[in-house]
Simulated scan of single mutants.
Amino acid sequence: MDEEAIRKYRDAGRALRAALRKAVDSVHPGMKVLELCELVEGVVREYGAEPAFPTNVGINDVAAHYTAVIGDGLTIPSNSVVKIDAGAHIDGYITDAAVTVYFNDAFSLLAKAARNALVNAIDNFKPGTSMGRIGAVVEKTVRSYGYKPIENLTGHLIRRYELHAGVSVPNVEVDGGEKVMEGETYAIEPFTTNGRGHVVEGRAVTIYRVERLTAKKLDKELAKALDAIYSRFNSLPFTPRWLVKDLGQGAASIVEQLTRRGALYGYATLVEAGKGFVAQFEDTVLVTSDGAQPLVGTAELAQ
């Protein structure tokens, strides 16, 4: 990886750290999820980066893929566990990180298990180490607190404009797997739960990405909208609320039509199968010959 790419990764990491720090300091019961999302994304932009995907706010049993919709009235509940998962990129060089905040001390160990699993995974994330070994470290740490890791959520290799670049970083022990490679960038993201230990798809879809630019049966308006979406976001995820200035108040309807025609892919929300509460900590690391260098430092943002 050349020095310019490394600099952009580090700058994106600093922007994301500032955004998550602000989120941890600001989030409170009664706060609108829309306000929280816009706060995080606004700080990312203030630091000269762009959001790499819409800010995910996972409340209680919602593990991933919920972001505020246009005019969203959802608020942070009392006694809740809240995951804030956000991304920043500069010229397509992405950092992806998450923190958990809780408003009931009964969930402090649930969050601590995820945080310490992340720390231990990073400590073991050295060139040549198998992903199966990393999964074993995460699982052992989580279970030592009496909780379960979520087995069907994983971290991932990150490449330029590719948030999920084909290699998974498991949260449970698996046989073998890919090796950690020097010079690559990975997101490591342990999830912990007091539920069943796996997620299923919910009904809501709030995040999308371009699936194909050659979808058939698009009229001129839809084709123009698709071109505008791709030119702004490339293959990175987005939300209809980011399109209101470009497409007007009908942005959500346009996105729905493009999704039905196969031009866009919609990410369903992911919820814990047993309705268990979920905590998450995530960081993006750059692998060097000495090990993994965290680019965001989310473990230091723990409540």
Rank of each mutant, 00 (worst) to 15 (best):
E4C: 05
E4M: 12
A5C: 10
A5I: 05
A5G: 14
R7N: 15
G13C: 13
G13E: 08
A18W: 02
R21L: 07
A23I: 04
S26G: 00
H28S: 09
P29Q: 11
G30P: 13
K32D: 00
L39G: 01
E41V: 10
V43E: 05
V44F: 03
A49F: 01
E50D: 12
F53D: 15
P54E: 07
T55V: 13
A63G: 02
A64C: 13
Y66E: 15
Y66C: 11
T67G: 15
D72I: 05
D72Y: 08
G73P: 09
I76W: 10
N79Y: 09
K83W: 04
I84E: 08
D85L: 13
I90F: 09
I94L: 14
I94P: 14
I94T: 15
D96G: 11
V99I: 13
N104R: 10
A106M: 06
L109R: 14
A111F: 06
K112R: 15
A113V: 04
A114G: 14
N116G: 01
A117H: 07
V119A: 12
V119C: 09
N120R: 15
F125T: 01
K126V: 13
K126S: 10
P127E: 07
T129V: 14
T129D: 03
S130Q: 07
G132Y: 07
I134S: 09
I134F: 10
G135S: 05
V138C: 05
S144C: 02
Y145G: 02
P149Q: 00
N152Q: 03
T154F: 10
G166M: 12
V167W: 06
N171Y: 01
N171C: 00
V172H: 00
E173V: 00
E173M: 02
T185W: 10
H198G: 04
V199T: 14
E201H: 15
E201C: 07
R203W: 03
V205W: 08
V205L: 07
T214A: 13
A215N: 06
E221L: 12
L222F: 14
K224E: 10
A225P: 07
A228I: 05
R232N: 11
S235G: 12
V244P: 00
L247N: 00
A251S: 03
A252Q: 06
I254H: 05
I254K: 10
R261I: 06
G262R: 13
Y265H: 14
A268D: 05
T269G: 08
L270C: 03
L270I: 11
K275P: 01
K275S: 14
A279Y: 02
F281S: 06
T288E: 09
S289M: 08
G291F: 04
A292F: 03
Q293W: 01
L295W: 06
T298C: 08
A299N: 07
E300H: 08
Q303L: 10
